[in-house]
Design a protein around this nucleic acid. Sequence first.
DNA 1: AGCTTGAATGAAAGCGCTTTCAATAGATGC
DNA 2: GCATCTATTGAAAGCGCTTTCATTCAAGCT
Lengths: 335, 335
Amino acid sequence: MRQGGRIKLSDVARDAGVSPATVSRAIAQPHLLSEETLAKVRASALRLGYLPDGAARALASGRSMTIGAIVPTLDSAIFARALQAMQSTLAQEGFLLLVASHEGHAAAEAQAVRSLLGRGVDGLMLVGAERPPETVAMLKEARVPIVLTWCGDGNFTAVTIDNVLAGRLAAEHLIGLGHRRIGMVTGQLRFNDRQRARLAGARAALAEAGLGLPDQLHSEQAVTLAGGRIGCATLLELDDPPTALIGGIDLLAIGCMEEAHARGISVPFGLSVVGIDGLDMSAHVSPSLTTVHLPIGRIGTLAAETLMALVAGRFAETTMLPVELVVRRSTARLD
Amino acid sequence: MRQGGRIKLSDVARDAGVSPATVSRAIAQPHLLSEETLAKVRASALRLGYLPDGAARALASGRSMTIGAIVPTLDSAIFARALQAMQSTLAQEGFLLLVASHEGHAAAEAQAVRSLLGRGVDGLMLVGAERPPETVAMLKEARVPIVLTWCGDGNFTAVTIDNVLAGRLAAEHLIGLGHRRIGMVTGQLRFNDRQRARLAGARAALAEAGLGLPDQLHSEQAVTLAGGRIGCATLLELDDPPTALIGGIDLLAIGCMEEAHARGISVPFGLSVVGIDGLDMSAHVSPSLTTVHLPIGRIGTLAAETLMALVAGRFAETTMLPVELVVRRSTARLD
DNA sequence: AGCTTGAATGAAAGCGCTTTCAATAGATGC
DNA sequence: GCATCTATTGAAAGCGCTTTCATTCAAGCT
């Protein structure tokens, strides 16, 4: 029950003295019209303040010019940046972003997928490749392109980074500095393949160096500063505490530094800390955080571009973006 | 041109042996059906994997179950948090969030308004009350509820905070600590009534104390850490530098502290710094930042609730949320 | 001149759903 | 016992747009 009064396509058509079909073409395929007609239609549309009805266009054309994105949370510097990059890339082509978050719950993600698919998004971006088979099935049956980000798998096109390598780089940096007891604080491992991969990468590097990362040197925490503090405290209170810590994300690493600080332990001289992410903030904390920099904005931009290419029927393949260790002041050679 | 194969309402109807109208009711107004029919329809829908077409529903019913939000950028702890709160509140009632950002450009905002309204959002959230008259006109003509956030005006329902008071509280705190030369670093004032209001609040408080905030003690910068550093540097290099600084947002205040640190000036003993926002981060920087805490998550939640109430035809009025000074370690009495 | 071709436009059939409006059938009231 | 309700269901008319398919007309060829 649209309220009366809204100008519709047929009003413009009448005003311009052409058929509705012509007005429709003026909007979507202007090259099909003569300049004269086009000008006439545009003038009418402008004068009447015509705004096409998206629902009707979507229904008639099967395209909604809308891309869906489902992330764990918007309230995170990382996902916020990726979404901002996506949004602005999409906007250039007239697409809009429909967002949903699942806050770490697989069921909420499934619900979001259903919702977004039902809303007729033209493409869908998700984070990570791990999800229940029912959700995967739903995505596979979807008649729209799906793009995974951060982690991919064989099932869908993806824009990924090498999380295993990220973990490895962090660990190798510390090993190279002479550390022998290295701990790691990660976020929840469940329903988070990014964190698992980073842990696995660190483990592998440590194992190759003959060191290993026993379970007691790994602490799984909420991905907040407070989580980092708790994780750090847990590991520092071991009988034989680590001399260096890896944070599964920068936020955790920063929490670790804070806890060390609170305990009067110097970073980097009493404890080396390295993060993974490369948040802006990390360059600005004190001491500045050594971290494995991930091209977060690029993930968003590329995800958007990939999705738009796929929507347009063009080809697009899975991409893996490079990660890079950025050495700053939070790590030092073990004396 | 929907690809073939997707199950539609009429398929379910046929399968369940009822009319399409009945299936439609089973989805939207189940109380109108007998339990028996309802069960039959639900079983068919489930078995066939029926997913209603959002565009068609929107077109037929005039409701899209979608709320639009236009923020300056998603890539900001503040707006990200507000949007996350909105999103999760909306999701509880089955609404989805369509987001757009304007990155400080009024024209981009107008474009976003047009886009979102065209997409048939059921309601629209915007930040601040300042915008070109054409945009305001477009919003007033819109047949959907509009809710402003952070700052409001008489034209639309709003969920606001007292930005003037926030500026005032920051200034009064510093005045109370004996500071006499107080500077302020704000973000761009143009197309940002929040920053202007905070500056005005600080100015008023300073004026009342007989101090004033001359233009040279105000620096307008990009809202980034780097902006904060530059602003701080600018003010500290004055012949008669301030002994205390107010950051228009926490990020700027943190940038100020960093710059002071880099110059070997102690915060708070060589320079007091107070922010406005109450970011999580601010409690965790060193020294922890004294700031005027704003209930950002609450803004998002309330904006969502207000919008949903209005969409449902219920009454909702403009709200002003309280702000509160949180004293931490970045401010000290002037010796 | 007669025919083909291409460009520009219009007519009309939906896209998949919601929602009056009617119809039917028991149930209720006097 | 008959009119009046009330609860269920169905029929059918769109919602506002896109998109074949046809049509028209003028230009280009032989």
